[in-house]
């Protein structure tokens, strides 16, 4: 409980900064929409084709946008040496990980709330009949992305060339999560008569649980000075 309270304090602080500056959110939404837009140009105006690959386009957009957000994860602490401050606070350092993780999940989900309707308009997808299933897949995928992302962002924050290193480490690790999210999303959008999406949702849940346990376990080592 104490751990969650500490984590929430960090979430609150970061969201408050974000709410007052709106630095990341606006840029992220715009960037994500642009990614979808560029894909639509690259693949041509064939609506049926765009629907077939809509899951892939959406998740590539989310992954690229998420990288922007992850690179900023520890930025507010970094500029004034605040990470040292967080580190010397008594108590479990895992609260920092949980706090940053929740913050990333919340911001990315907020972006997706704009991105999914935008995709529905661009690719002529019926969102409302599948809203619950799509929301479930989006949440599971975003949690998985944010777990591995928040962890690797902590690892690369002090690194030279971290803008290159984060995606280099993150994307190969994310492949099971991307496969699960892309296939589940596409199946839900184009119709899933054989209920094949179940296996992908199970993959997402498994991925989230495994990496949550590993990240939480190793995070204190990653944060050491």
């Amino acid at each position: 409980m104490e751990l969650l309270r500490r984590a929430w304090t960090i979430v609150w602080k970061d969201l408050l900064i974000e709410a007052r500056t709106k630095q990341a959110f606006n840029a992220m939404v715009f960037f994500a929409a642009l990614v979808l837009f560029i894909f639509s140009f690259a693949l041509g105006p064939d609506t049926e084709l765009l629907q077939q690959v809509s899951g892939g386009l959406l998740w590539v957009g989310i992954a690229f946008t998420g990288i922007l957000s992850l690179n900023r994860t520890y930025q507010s602490e970094e500029t004034s040496g605040g990470i040292e401050g967080l580190r010397v606070y008594p108590g479990d350092p895992r609260a920092i990980f949980l706090g940053k993780l929740f913050g990333n999940i919340i911001i990315l989900l907020a972006v997706e709330m704009v991105l999914f309707p935008a995709a529905a308009v661009l690719f002529q997808i019926q969102l409302l009949p599948h809203a619950l299933e799509l929301a479930g897949v989006a949440i599971l995928g975003t949690i998985g992305f944010s777990i591995v992302g928040t962890f690797y962002a902590a690892l690369t924050v002090n690194l030279r060339a971290r803008e290159v290193m984060l995606p280099l480490l993150l994307f190969p690790a994310l492949i099971p999560m991307l496969l699960g999210a892309v296939n589940a999303t596409t199946l839900i959008v184009v119709g899933d008569p054989m209920l094949d999406s179940g296996i992908w949702i199970r993959l997402l849940v498994t991925f989230d649980v495994i990496f949550f346990v590993i990240s939480l376990w190793i995070f204190p080592i990653a944060l050491e000075e």
Binding site: F151, P172, A173, P176, G180, L203, T206, I214, I218
Partner: peptide, 13 residues
């Protein structure tokens, strides 16, 4: 450690 733990998950997926 994380990379190695990921290989079987990647394979399965």
């Amino acid at each position: 450690i994380i990379g190695f733990a990921n290989v079987p998950i990647v394979y399965l997926s």
